[in-house]
Structures are given as C-alpha cells and as structure tokens.
Amino acid sequence: MSVTIKDVAKLADVAPSTVSRVIANNPRISEKTKRKVKEAMDYLGYHPNFNARSLANRSTQAIGLVMPSSADKAFQNPFFPEVIRGISTMAHEQEYALYMSTGKTEDEIFDGVVRMVQGRRVDGIVMLYSRVDDRIMCYLQEQNFPFTVIGKPFKNAETITHIDNDNFRAGQEMTEHLLSLGHERIGFVGGDLNLVVTIDRLLGYEKAIRNAGLPHKDEYIVHEEFLKEGGQEAVKELLGLKNPPTALLVMDDLMSFGVLSTLNDLGLSVPDDISLLSFNNVMLSELSSPALTSVDINIFQLGYEAAKGLLECIQTPGKPAKRVTVPFELAERQSCKKIN
C-alpha cells in the first residue's frame, strides 16, 4: 500500500495541509517544521506526485535553458557544462528539472523557445548569453514570461534580472596587467561582436590602451568564434602584421588552446616569444603547456545565481529586476612574462 500525505502528517504530528506546504516550499513554514516533515517523508519513503501538483498549481517544476548556438557546438566549450552545473545545483535544491533548447540554427532555437512558452513546458527560462538585439529576449519580454540572463542585456537592462561579471573592468584590468609587464603591442582576440560580453571587454581594453598613452591600432583587434579554431585563425592574422603583438588578451580559454597550438606549430614559445592572458579559467587551463594565466569568472556561480534569480521571479511575480555581479580574479600561471 502506497504512503500518503496523511501518513506523513500523522508521523510528523502536523496537519496534512502543512505537509503540502512543506512540499511546495512555502516560506511561511518554519525550518523546524520543514525538517520534521522531511524526516518523516524520508523515513516512510514518501515521494510527492509532482505531476499532480503541476496540474493543480499550473507549475511544470521545470526551467528552460537557451544556448547561444546549437548544443553540439556550444558543448565544445567547457564554459557551458560548468555554467549548467551551477544552474542544475540550484534547480536540484528547489526540486526543478531542466529543459534545454536543441535547435541547430537561430530560427530553430527561437521556435523551440516559443514552444517552451506557448506549450507551458517550463515555468521560466535562463538565457546563457546576451546578444545585441536578440529576438528571443524581446519575445520573452513581450510575453511577460519569467526569465533571467547570464550577461548584461544590451537594452532595458534595468528591467531584466541578469547575472554578470563586470566585463568592462575585467577587460581594462587585464590589459593593465599586460602593460605592467612591459608590453605595449597588445593584441585583442575577441569573440562574436554581437555578444555583449565581447563589446564590454573590448571597451575595457581600449580604455586601458588610451590611459597608457598608446596609439589605438585596429589591426591588433580580431574577432573569431569562441572555439579552438577561432584562436588558430586569430594567430595567423596577428602574426602576419609588420609589428606583431608581444602579448595577446584572448576572450576565452578554448580559443587560447587554439592559439597555443598554432604558435607551437610555428615554432614560437609562450611566454618567451609572446605572452598570453585568457578568460574563464576552465579546468584544462592549468593543465595546458604552458599553464594559462586566465581570469577566473566563477562560471559555476554565474549559473547558480541565474537559476536562483529565475526562481525568485517565478515564485514572486512582479519582483523588481536586479543585477547580480559575480566577482572575478586573475589566476596567474606561466603564459605571461615581463619584458624590457
């Protein structure tokens, strides 16, 4: 015979309605009562029927994830598994499932989001990127559907809950770090210029160059995809210059692995011939040869805070939008060198 809410209530010495509120994570129930009810549930082996709950309160107990590109391409970058790990941890704490976009083109990804929203397959959505004039973000706003963004929205940032690093300051401070090592010819290897993170870090880089009294050189700035191949193409372009950079500021560790591979093929040494400073500090950064000096942007925390912010939007409709700024720090290793 299956265990019921009444059985749990009897063992915990509370009313059945209290058990229901504990299952729904009602904030009005004390932590002591929640603990007592959960202990009774564990002892009896009781598992709530979330399908029945969803029908009753029109909740799916699921949140949607929207990638910037097809999943097979996005998952080549270690950023995405780690940020999803952060989202998943918070979702698990609140007993939510994850539902991921699977389209291969922008149109397919957009259509998938429309199906999530119109079919009420999820209670809210986390966007794992922020793009200039993104139609998915515009659609979600028009539908008044709960969502959060990892990154700073290009428009209406004050009305959208978003979780981000201070990428302008990061771009500036990392360029200043290379300047402090004596480098004056610093290349910038950015990602897609439609991504707000690329724009912010580029503006920070340019400000540091201006503040140092150095000339701005457009030929030192290249933009490629956040993939290993993107880094390889960037190196070929920059090293073909008459006065190539002595240091590179690269927007993503995966691109940096491509840079390292190409430099090695050309017989150039990092950091003896050229210094390399990267972003993201993924696990492989310290295992590369040489180990990458990289900016730790706390990827897991970005995901965790994005899910937390979304659940607040779902559970408290009308709650004012907020920005959560996740700190960053430089992990210094062997890929940067002081020069005369």
Rank of each mutant, 00 (worst) to 15 (best):
A307V: 02
N167W: 00
Y96M: 05
S278E: 06
K338Y: 07
P290G: 03
T4E: 06
D7K: 07
R21V: 04
L241V: 02
N51K: 01
G171N: 01
M137W: 03
M283H: 12
R210L: 12
V66K: 07
M283R: 14
I209C: 00
P215N: 05
N51I: 04
P320K: 06
E332W: 09
E224K: 05
E93S: 10
A157N: 04
G309H: 06
H216N: 06
E206K: 14
R185S: 13
L203Y: 08
F80K: 09
A15W: 04
Q76F: 05
P68E: 07
S180R: 10
N211F: 09
D123P: 06
V22S: 01
M41C: 00
P271I: 05
Q94L: 10
S288N: 11
T102K: 13
P68I: 08
A307Y: 02
V235E: 03
P153S: 02
S2D: 13
G240V: 03
V295I: 11
S335H: 02
F154L: 08
S101R: 07
I274Y: 02
P48N: 03
I199W: 04
V149R: 05
H223A: 04
L227K: 11
I186V: 02
E82L: 13
A74W: 11
E312Q: 14
I63H: 00
A212K: 12
Q118N: 14
E233L: 15
K308I: 12
S278F: 06
V66G: 06
Y43T: 12
L227A: 12
L44S: 08
K322I: 15
N194A: 09
N264H: 13
F188G: 01
N25K: 12
G151I: 00
D252W: 11
K319Y: 05
V114M: 10
E329K: 13
E95M: 15
M137F: 02
H47Q: 10
